[in-house]
Design a protein around this nucleic acid. Structure first.
Lengths: 201, 201
DNA sequence: AAAAAACTACCGACCGGTAGGTAGCTTTTT
DNA sequence: AAAAAGCTACCTACCGGTCGGTAGTTTTTT
């Protein structure tokens, strides 16, 4: 998809993701991004052809990085609840990854001109998460899991994830953890019932 | 708190809430707001002293309107699940109320200069919701509800609400309803267990 | 009751500043 | 020497906000 990424373009993208994550599309300025990348604003146009294009490049970048991260959270089998490792790593991820902060901010409130491209991309991210969860759930419960139950738990899990994403943005660490614990408990109880049901269903 | 609201100011506030809800703080322009209110930009300053002040006025307006709406959802006793009526009315509310869309958008991603005022206000909205839910839950379960359990269910409910708020913003109606159904089911099961526990506690 | 003063809401013109973007020349890299 | 990437200088468009002034109403003074 993407052509070769030169070191200079790399610097631009990295500067851009910080600014976009912090100030949003409208609030971030190209001159600031250029300055952070160590060049003049006009020189940006040697690498990208418009602000829109830059934003989209950053978005694809972020999507790739974060989708890989999320997927890796599901690789090792979970000791307790399916999908829990991803949830538990969100706090640290939000603190550490500009790409993640960028992704959350611009997916919930995208610039209107780019709405469709962005929605499609984020949709893909969430879709992958859902599939990873469903797989893990099936592995956890065992063979007797009804499709309908799996679907319901999938919806619940995606709700849980969105709820945690939002919590990252606007409530503190303590309440993030309390929320995770509370919702995890509900999920856990429900899944245990599914396990029991699958055994003598 | 607020001085008298003249009809002209009313028109300005109503035009502003639409623009702010649609384009955000930075994206909304005063000239457009003025035009929609039927006056020139310069005339805005007869009614408000700055863009910040206008935004805050709109915010307080929205907060008052939406807090009252939310509270009313809890007035009549709920036949089934505590707090369900609020959740079920969100879809229509989001479609109908500029104030509500404004509130969601600007609470998740506030303009940085006004961060503190806005966070405090939205905090209050959510706090009231939590108290309304807890009251309804206690009424539903009966006397034997442990404080700790009530707290956990409160966190879960607030997570559910945030998750639905987000769903309004970026996923369609069908999946909103599916999510609500799924999470409602989890809550319901957990609450039923609390009811049983309270009976022979 | 009439005149004077004050006030309100509005206007067009304009301010300094910044935005994204372009033209054309120079430097660096290959 | 050609291509890529940098630069300075500049453009137009728009931003939030202020200015001086005006028409019309309300309040005060005489």
């Amino acid at each position: 998809m993407s052509s070769t990424t030169t070191p200079a373009l790399r610097r631009v993208l990295n500067a851009a993701v910080v600014q976009f994550a912090r100030h949003g599309y409208e609030g971030a300025s190209l001159s600031r991004i250029a300055a952070d990348a160590g060049i003049r604003k006009a020189s940006l146009y040697s690498h990208v052809k418009s602000k829109d294009a830059l934003f989209l490049a950053v978005f694809e970048d972020a999507l790739e990085v974060e989708a890989r991260f999320a997927h890796e959270c599901f690789e090792a089998p979970e000791p307790t609840l399916p999908g829990l490792r991803y949830c538990e790593s969100l706090l640290a991820r939000y603190a550490d990854s500009d790409h993640f902060r960028f992704l959350l901010r611009t997916s919930y409130i995208p610039p209107e001109s780019l709405f469709h491209e962005l929605q499609e991309g984020y949709e893909g991210y969430m879709q992958q998460l859902l599939m990873d969860f469903t797989t893990a759930l099936r592995r956890h419960v065992g063979g007797g899991l009804a499709d309908q139950d799996a679907e319901v738990m999938g919806h619940a899990y995606m709700g849980l994830v969105d709820s945690l994403h939002v919590a990252l943005i606007y409530i503190g660490q303590e309440r993030f953890e309390a929320r995770l614990e509370a919702l995890e408990r509900l999920m856990n109880e429900s899944i245990e019932r599914l396990v029991a049901g699958a055994r003598h269903g």
